[in-house]
Write a protein that binds this DNA or RNA. Structure first.
Lengths: 362, 362
DNA sequence: CTGTTAGCGCTTTCAT
DNA sequence: ATGAAAGCGCTAACAG
């Protein structure tokens, strides 16, 4: 395992041979200066140094100068571990627990979180669960031992009840993309239902009647909601009670592609397809190539260069999702009593060509 | 500002009215249990509890059980702040200091870092400088006060000399994508020169003589190296000493697009274009549309759906970049003496159509 | 304006 | 196998 850093040498050897050894990249067992060290050099008490460092006004200009110069020469850097311990172990670190780090979607969310948190002097620590429900609690537990100030998470475990104690202790928990289970927590989700239903309505308006839906299995809240939106809009138009064009296979990479091929091979193939998430979109685009004159396509989630490729999407601002979540954290930190909120981030249909094929039924 | 958490109530009221008040979402001013609390409940000393928590063997099975059950009932969670303070303020948090969080490239790097670090029990804290050179030192300073164990950074400030003291104290610094200035530090960079020169050679082999290069101004090491590779390959083929088809404008978004239009409007327009980074690529693709039968195109950096769009790229594995950087951190943590290394992550040309146009000069 | 004392929660001696 | 005392670096609470 990893060795701890070198500690202060109680009595360092006299620097008799200083002249012979240059101050080169040596690994002097010198240690970090403390308040006491600075105080000793400046001829004041540690507390006075502390006052200077904290910018307290109750220090004479002269003393302050002396302390500051001593601190500089010793390269003093206040130890926030000690400070935080003294202050009741309250840190300014907020954790973002995330399943799959390689999904660009979450990165943009993280960017939004980071930006908002930093406006309030909070830092973000990123922890991944590798999309493994079992590891969620373990990861969270580790973070709590570090005394993170709050928890932002994309819940993946079936149950977040294990956080109830922590919540009562005042640690805000904000869930992202889907709500928590068995835990009172704020959450920020997308307009999944509304966004998907809207897209389907648009297709129906363009004359489509056979509309496919390709997505991962709908275990996740977000996917459930999108599926619900899809079905609702179809039912609303009186098209069918149950669509034969749903493909809820695991849409990681190639599966979605295959799903589309299967759909197109049907006796009555769909004239339009909706993808339930960005992975599915990639598969659909691969399967359809650029033949959007044959089949209309709209994907949930925007992606890089979708504009160039002319792909119509149900888009939203991932950074805004993160920003709102971080905002909730700060709000809950300032007012731990408020009722839990669920914020919906708006989606909007961006028409770029792939989804605008009009159908004129005979 | 943000309020500190509620502290322990010295004497909580007797639970006489327990029956009337349900254990609902109340905000009991109860505080976190400490080793001492657990010890008191289990009838042992704090030290014994510590032993149990640390998994020491010198505890009777019977005592251990008692302590564990007490810990559970008090929801005890060891305070790593205190532990780390006692241990010389050594944390297991590594910082990744990054300029632009919205660049998907860095997110994949971060994913690689996170994965590798977590294999060694280290966590990643993400900090952004917003690509502002002036803020780099401020951000780093904040992180050092938190006593991060090591520093991974994409250097943006002109100089990292301010980290020399910290390095001597044993904090590993590993630079990503470009080397540090005035600081002895490991670094992980791309095969910028080799990758670009290789792509140019490929274009020359296909008959191209007028080859354009669109990139941001080459202040950054990586861009300098790519430009150098481009020029070298041209000179090597004896084509020109100085290319009139270099466009080193700020390639954020639209500028690159404009650059391409300018290039194509030349009396002798280039028959092939190389983009120096992914932002520039996006611009070039926008400008060229899908007309790669007129102008060949190769971009540095791969991107989502580039395969579908048929864009040829100089690709590499961003996660591998992060992995190697994290590996160096761990290595340096275990062996602080080793000489600084510079690792180059290999690139490879992926031909997907946009860059394979053959030219037969008369 | 400055210093002393005490203690945050934990673990390292060193006893027992 | 268990405990007592001391202290990591810092800062409230009180002096002076």
């Amino acid at each position: 395992m990893i060795e701890p850093a070198v500690r202060r040498g109680a009595d360092s050897p006299p620097d008799s041979d200083r002249a012979t050894t240059p101050p080169a990249p040596s690994l002097a067992p010198q240690s970090r200066a403390t308040l006491a060290d600075v105080g000793r050099l400046a001829g004041v008490s540690p507390k006075t140094v502390s006052r200077v460092v904290l910018g307290s006004s109750n220090v004479s200009k002269e003393t302050r100068e002396r302390v500051l110069s001593a601190a500089r020469s010793l390269r003093f850097r206040p130890n926030h571990l000690a400070r935080n311990l003294r202050h009741g172990s309250v840190t300014n670190t907020v954790a973002f627990v995330i399943g799959d780090l390689t999904n660009p979607f979450y990165f943009l969310v993280a960017a939004g979180i980071e930006r908002e948190l930093s406006r309030h002097g909070l830092m973000m620590i990123l922890a991944a669960t590798e999309d493994d429900p079992a590891s969620e609690e373990r990861v969270v537990e580790t973070l709590l031992k570090q005394r993170v100030r709050a928890l932002l998470m994309v819940p993946i475990a079936p149950d977040q009840a294990y956080l109830e104690g922590e919540r009562q202790l005042g640690t805000p928990v904000v869930c992202i993309d889907r709500p928590a289970h068995n835990l009172i927590a704020d959450s920020v989700v997308l307009e999944n239902f509304r966004g998907t239903a809207g897209a389907v309505r648009e297709l129906i308006r363009a004359g489509h009647r056979r509309i496919g839906f390709v997505c991962s299995p709908a275990e996740l809240y977000s996917h459930q909601e999108r599926l619900r939106g899809y079905r609702y809009a179809l039912a609303e138009a009186g098209i069918l009670d149950s669509s034969p064009w749903e493909r809820l296979e695991d849409a990681d990479g190639q599966t979605a592609e295959q799903s589309v091929h299967n759909l197109l091979a049907m006796a009555e193939p769909p004239t339009a397809i909706i993808a339930g998430n960005n992975r599915a979109s990639a598969g659909v685009v691969r399967a359809l190539g650029n033949r959007f004159d044959r089949v209309a396509f709209i994907g949930f989630d925007d992606f890089e260069l979708a504009d160039v490729a002319g792909i119509s999407v149900i888009a939203y601002d991932p950074a805004e999702l993160g920003r709102q979540a971080a905002r909730l954290v700060v709000e809950r930190l300032n007012d731990p009593i408020g009722l839990p909120q669920q914020i919906e981030i708006p989606t909007r249909l961006i028409q770029r060509g792939s989804g605008e094929l009009r159908i004129v039924e005979p």
